[in-house]
Design a protein around this nucleic acid. Structure first.
Lengths: 225, 225
DNA sequence: TCAACTTGACGAACGCTGTTCGCGAGGACT
DNA sequence: AGTCCTCGCGAACAGCGTTCGTCAAGTTGA
């Protein structure tokens, strides 16, 4: 462009940097969260970069790794877990905490999968662990048993959420599980055949309550011989 | 589209002339297994196709989907689970079965992840479920409680194996967990701080035995009020 | 004031993934 | 013998995470 026209000339490049919302770790995490919460429910480095109007490589200045980004997002998500909202006995409050935990993880499939893949060690994970230890102490569980119990409880919550997050409810009345159970020959699998109704009975809610009860009973029984 | 059952579907006959080792579903599954068991431990459609001297598209003549292939491989892997090898009381045999199960899943990280992702409904999964129901019946657990208990037991085994399969043991003495625990301020997380040694104590073996004990106690306590 | 240096954003490319499409060679019927 | 029709499969598509080398912007020193 040979002719110099001060008014028609495109703006000088130097404005460029300050004009953008300038990349930061928080902005990246927030955009990732926005994508997971959006319709298709999947985040990716490239989509985040595009949304932030930059190239994929730029994100690596603020985040080391995809797994690190997931860990950051996960902890942000765990902010929503209420650790002392429930009322009543330690038993009720424990179940309430676990219910809040699993509820948060199940709001989006990606949350559950992230929770399962990355061992949560952020501030919010610590907050939840602290609350669980508190409740177990109140229940009279000694420190050694409580320490191992919280691992089991969080693993349980995470696993249930992740299982539920997979492909469109495999336990549905005509899903693959039902199909397999019904196809099972009664002579080779007599007990499965006999229990086929019980195997698929119960809502997710009922089974959750049952499982928590089993865990609590088991922990108490083990801790107080 | 109704759900497609990988185990019920009859194999499509290959019309290819016999110059090559002629592609078949079994050959694909076997090659997949070989790759997972190999050094890098990862399988992929394209690598399988290359190993079988063909293009990636050809596999779709014998397998509908990547997830279907994984389901087939998983059931093949579960063949190795011994359901009645252990001796002694039902309690000992149950623990032996779970130990064999988790042992098989932990031989390769990919096995554990597959078991976690795909809900196992193949013949070998049924075989294991049948054995679990048998043992629980022997323990005096009624059918309804047993039906839900086997779900919890398999989920537990799967989750432990999958957690262990992640990135190079996060629970190591100087892994991320240890780092987070030690960095936790004693005033904000008093119970975590107090229990920091117990939280990271114990071998995988010890924690597994402890967890099985908790589960068994919980199930029995719940089933026999 | 201006040159040298440091820092970090980022375009482009790499190598990988699962999946789809359409062509064309062969076996199977008429 | 000729015509279908089936199905194997090469090629391409649309994505992924990650790396590298370049070059502009900001900072420092003379």
């Amino acid at each position: 462009m040979p002719h110099h026209d001060p008014f028609g000339a495109s703006e000088v490049e130097s404005r460029r940097r300050a004009a953008k919302p300038l990349l930061s770790r928080d902005a990246i995490v927030e955009e990732a969260l926005r994508q997971i919460t959006s319709e298709d429910g999947a985040m990716s480095l490239r989509k985040i970069a595009k949304a932030l109007d930059t190239g994929p490589a730029s994100l690596y200045a603020h985040v080391n790794d995809m797994s690190e980004l997931q860990a950051l997002v996960l902890d942000r998500v765990l902010e929503a877990v209420k650790v002392d909202e429930a009322e009543g006995s330690w038993r009720d409050r424990l179940e309430g905490l676990l219910r809040s935990y699993i509820g948060v993880l199940m709001t989006r499939p990606a949350f559950a999968l992230m929770a399962f893949r990355t061992t949560a060690v952020g501030p919010n994970a610590l907050r939840i662990a602290e609350a669980l230890l508190e409740l177990l102490a109140e229940a009279g569980v000694d420190q050694a048993n409580a320490a191992w119990a919280i691992d089991m409880l969080t693993m349980f919550v995470t696993a249930v959420a992740a299982e539920h997050a997979q492909d469109s409810d495999p336990g549905a009345p005509d899903g693959p599980v039902a199909h397999a159970i019904n196809r099972a020959p009664a002579d080779r699998y007599p007990r499965i055949h006999a229990a086929r109704n019980e195997i698929m009975s119960g809502t997710g809610e009922e089974r959750f309550a049952w499982s928590v009860d089993v865990l609590v009973r088991g922990i108490l029984s083990r801790a107080q011989p």
